[in-house]
């Protein structure tokens, strides 16, 4: 690891100011950032730790949405009565991230800001059509993820919370990569008053919506509606863990499983 200055601001505005200096990086739970620093894949002059900002933590109901603070650890989302009651799919997704020890420390904001192509949360954010709230603006899910480890965030922008609309039904089906246990393919399927959304993580450089499945499911939200749907391998990831061909098949299969689970 290269050395860096460590700052732990007491307010969001301090954090934003500190982040504005060159080569600064936000530290949330650190579950991806610190290993990447250890492997010397990244180098920063300053790490700005959001750990002291209690306002960024917590889960609350706001009308027809759940608002989850960016610094809320996965374990809290997984165990939250509120989430388990109104959005159990999100609790179950959180319960499947990494492992229990990672879930105790890793955060929602950190996960989506990192935008790992195989992370779980991006599927929920896009699948639910969530809004990412920052210290400056609100970004819609469809505009947020831009590519491999790439988001719409400005260098000095801080995610404060994510607003998840409560759907009629939803489920996340994850196929774990055997080594890292990240998503080889993860599918978040949602039926809500606004229609149907199906978001796929792990299969491509960035989370994406499965238009063919959405079109089929909007007519009838049932597993059988997905029969015959196939996915072009173009643009899908292919690596030692799975070929693009297998991922394409797994996306369809995991979509069926997500829909089946959502209907339970």
């Amino acid at each position: 690891m290269y050395d860096f200055a460590y700052l732990k601001p007491a307010s969001l505005s301090d954090a934003a100011n500190q982040l504005a200096s060159p080569d600064s990086k936000l530290l949330a739970g650190g579950m991806s950032l610190i290993p990447s620093l250890k492997l010397r894949l990244n180098r920063y002059a300053t790490l700005v730790d959001l750990g002291a900002l209690a306002d960024l933590k917590g889960i609350r109901r706001e009308g027809d949405a759940l608002v989850i603070g960016a610094m809320t650890p996965h374990a809290e989302v997984a165990a939250s009565d509120e989430v388990l009651t109104v959005l159990p799919a999100l609790a179950s997704l959180a319960e499947g991230i990494g492992d229990p020890l990672v879930r105790n420390r890793g955060t929602l904001g950190g996960s989506i800001a990192n935008a790992d192509p195989a992370a779980d949360y991006p599927a929920a954010v896009v699948g639910l059509g969530a809004s990412v709230i920052t210290n400056r603006r609100t970004i819609t899910a469809d505009d947020f993820f831009k590519g491999v480890f790439e988001t719409a965030l400005q260098p000095d922008e801080i995610i404060t919370a994510v607003r998840f609309p409560i759907p009629k039904r939803a489920a996340y089906a994850k196929y774990r990569q055997p080594a890292s246990r990240f998503a080889l393919v993860g599918v978040f399927a949602v039926q809500s008053a606004n229609g149907v959304r199906v978001a796929v993580t792990g299969a491509a450089p960035s989370v994406f919506r499965l238009a063919a499945a959405e079109a089929a499911l909007i007519k009838r939200f049932a597993v059988a509606a997905l029969d015959g749907i196939t996915l072009d391998t173009e643009g899908l990831n292919s690596d030692i863990h799975a070929s693009a061909e297998y991922r394409a098949h797994a996306v369809v299969e995991m979509t069926k499983r997500a829909v089946a689970a959502a209907l339970k």
Binding site: L39, P178, A179, S180, F182, I240, H241
Partner: peptide, 11 residues
Amino acid sequence: PLTGSFMDYAM
């Protein structure tokens, strides 16, 4: 070599 950590070597 493509399996350089527990991220890729399946234990």
